[in-house]
């Protein structure tokens, strides 16, 4: 190879190539989809955080975001629908040296996997959970989700969603997550910083990433790809430490982004070692 070719090759090399299974590219995500940006920020955060990447694993569930684990050049586990968190919990508890990142979607983590999320947060299992929230089930063609805004149209709510969506940061906060943040794919640098903070928190960290799904969600709700990003720009309000009850996704009123909880407390394995392992306890005082 000539020097010129090498230089050209170097010029097109993506800064995250060393963290990607480049032979698996192109990825399956649609044009205009936000998952790639969320994924890229997540990898950038992992890289910049300085954690030992040889001891870092990514676990995903099922769905569009669930394909994340398939593209990262780390030990990566693409599990069953909704079960990324309990699978990751087993991994972390079996080998506490591992840094475990769960990268998955809103349907996977909060509908079918909702029970697992609330319990992992309650226990403060040392996981970093990144949820790409694109407001619908994209992989199956755009059905209503637990995050679909009220009255939004999907293939299974053709006249509009009769239900209300979850406020995910509020849920995470209420369940005991020790780090909670929300950004959009338009806020890639803030998102990367949030991932770095989440990885540094020795406990259950939750980062919600609002992302456009132009093909399945946008198309049915009169949102062109740029319209969604414009919404993210014009209707978002950055307010760190906002109270989690103010965090409903309501684009009319504006959607609050930022870091809402950063309150480290002992994680589940620390508490297990302290409470359940007898040798850690001081000897009992003699009755005499």
């Amino acid at each position: 190879m000539t020097t010129a070719q090498e230089a050209q090759r170097e010029a097109v090399k993506h800064p995250l190539d060393d963290l990607l299974r480049t032979e698996r590219i192109p990825h399956i995500w649609c044009p205009g989809c936000g998952i790639g940006t969320a994924f890229s920020s997540c990898l950038m955060g992992m890289k910049e955080s300085g954690i030992d990447l040889d001891n870092t694993v990514m676990v995903s569930g099922i769905g569009c975001s669930g394909r994340g684990a398939g593209y990262v050049k780390l030990d990566s586990y693409h599990t069953t629908h909704g079960r990324a968190i309990p699978f990751a919990t087993g991994m972390k508890l079996a080998n506490t040296d591992l840094n475990v990142v769960v990268f998955s979607g809103d349907g996977d983590l909060f509908a079918i996997g909702g029970n697992h999320f609330i319990h992992a947060a309650r226990r403060n299992v040392d996981l970093t959970v990144v949820c790409v929230n694109n407001f619908n089930y994209g992989m199956t063609g755009g059905q209503v989700a637990a995050t679909t805004p009220h009255l939004a149209k999907t293939t299974t709510t053709p006249l509009g969603n009769p239900d209300s969506p979850f406020n995910l940061p509020l849920l995470a906060y209420a369940c005991g997550a020790s780090y909670v943040a929300r950004w959009t794919t338009l806020h890639a640098r803030d998102l990367t910083s949030a991932i770095i903070e989440a990885l540094a928190n020795p406990g259950f960290s939750f980062v919600e990433v609002l992302a456009p799904c132009p093909i399945n969600y946008g198309r049915r709700n009169k949102e062109k790809p740029l319209d969604t990003l414009r919404l993210f720009q014009e209707k978002s309000i950055i307010k760190n430490n906002a109270h989690p009850t103010e965090l409903d996704v309501d684009w009319e009123r504006g959607v609050v982004l930022g870091t809402f909880v950063n309150n480290p407390r002992p994680c589940s394995t620390d508490m297990y070692d302290k409470v359940c392992r007898l040798e850690e306890k001081p000897p009992k005082k003699s009755a005499a």
Partner: peptide, 12 residues
Amino acid sequence: AAMASIVGASCA
């Protein structure tokens, strides 16, 4: 979750 956790633990 119990079953998922033991599969994860074994992978670790």
